[in-house]
Design a protein around this nucleic acid. Structure first.
Lengths: 223, 223
DNA sequence: TCGGAAATTCCAGTCCGTTTAAATTGAGGG
DNA sequence: CCCTCAATTTAAACGGACTGGAATTTCCGA
């Protein structure tokens, strides 16, 4: 039984929302908003997913992925992130181009293709955005990460993930050297959601608060 | 307007059949047989294609591709053959594995992806089967080719294309060195559709008549 | 307990691709 | 020239996969 693209997209969305709203089930409206469909459609689809054993569904409460559903979601996410990396590293795509292409292809590559690119990339654990790539078995190598806005001043960090797909933003970050893995130091955080001043490779730069909320970092051992 | 995979597949098979039955339009039944659907389905679809301006359709006579339809068919074929080559040369697929993967992916890659792989392959003109790859503009670099069964004895040829996708056959040919581009000499053609004996790289081999009909060659300047 | 937001039900519609069965067409043999 | 038969088209309908509007129900918090 072939799994449709729509089903895969629903599962992916539910997975994402499950991460945020820890604990309780995912609400119908949230799914509807994120996917830009009516809530009626969502209820419909969720019932189908429940019948297929991919989600647990309790009326008026919310939805949770079953192991089977989560496995599919993670497989798609694995495809997506492997593809992003592959497109960038091997095919010469730029950072801001990979997302859309991966979004299409993730639904259509075979397991063999998945294995090949993983191999060619030497079985990577993180994609170009710094997001972890689930293993074939559905295990995610998690990383401790906090947004740049909630971090101590005058301390060294490694930029972990950039939680945003906006091409303009990505190009901007690229320009100023903010690439996942780079070492940065927070010099000053202006109050009242003001800009965050950081040091990247010797240069100091001020970043808008909104942008900073998308930059996740982990602490670096002081060199 | 997104073109569905089914439409693309119909156009592709009409294109193939047009090549064979030179002149007249392509018959409904032939399409039906090749695609393994009922002839009613074919008539239906062809009318849709006609409405979309992709084929010329005259009741009870047959179907012809319009320029617009042919362009789409050639684009898909270009995707297919580029992909086959890419999968083999860069991703390390074996000759007999590429077809199925390409058959899926051909419908889903973007123009950018197409361009990238063409570039990485240095804009090739033929795929691993020896089939010509249409250009982006829809021009096919044709090659003069006759099946091995209709060729003079004791003369040198270059193997051009292998017109068959059967993995088992492809592996067999690979084993005995029958790869597109290889130089071969026809030693003997047994009568009554008997085996064809050829010399490949010093070795002489006998090939069944049925297999030989799939091997297309062009004459080689005698070394 | 009540009001409103969230969720569900009910129903309908669309699109795409397909099939069966009956009717039609056209071409070649007698 | 007609007749038969195979090829083709028509007609009707189905089913899957989604989707949406509108009415209804549920739940929760004030």
């Amino acid at each position: 039984m072939r799994i449709s693209q729509a089903v895969e997209d629903y599962l992916k969305t539910i997975y994402r929302l499950e991460l945020e709203s820890k604990g309780e089930g995912v609400s119908t409206t949230k799914i509807a908003n994120l996917m830009k469909v009516s809530s009626a459609s969502v209820t419909n689809m969720i019932k189908r997913l429940a019948k297929l054993g991919m989600v647990r569904y309790e009326s008026y409460y919310g939805t949770t992925l079953t192991d089977s559903g989560r496995k599919i979601a993670l497989e798609i996410i694995r495809h997506h992130r492997l593809l992003e990396l592959y497109l960038k590293e091997i095919m010469g795509y730029s950072w801001d181009q990979v997302h859309d292409e991966a979004e299409n292809l993730e639904h259509h590559i075979s397991e063999q293709f998945e294995d090949k690119i993983a191999e060619l990339l030497d079985h990577p654990t993180h994609d170009p955005h710094g997001d972890p790539i689930p293993t074939k078995e559905g295990v995610i190598p998690e990383i401790a990460s906090r947004p740049l806005t909630e971090v101590r001043e005058s301390k060294d960090y490694l930029l972990g993930r950039v939680k945003n797909q906006d091409p303009e933003l990505l190009r901007y970050l690229d320009d100023i050297g903010l690439i996942p893995g780079v070492r940065i130091k927070v010099l000053e955080k202006a109050p009242l959601k003001g800009p965050v001043t950081i040091e990247v490779e010797g240069e100091s730069t001020a970043i808008g608060y909104d942008v900073a909320t998308h930059l996740y970092v982990m602490s670096a051992k002081n060199s």
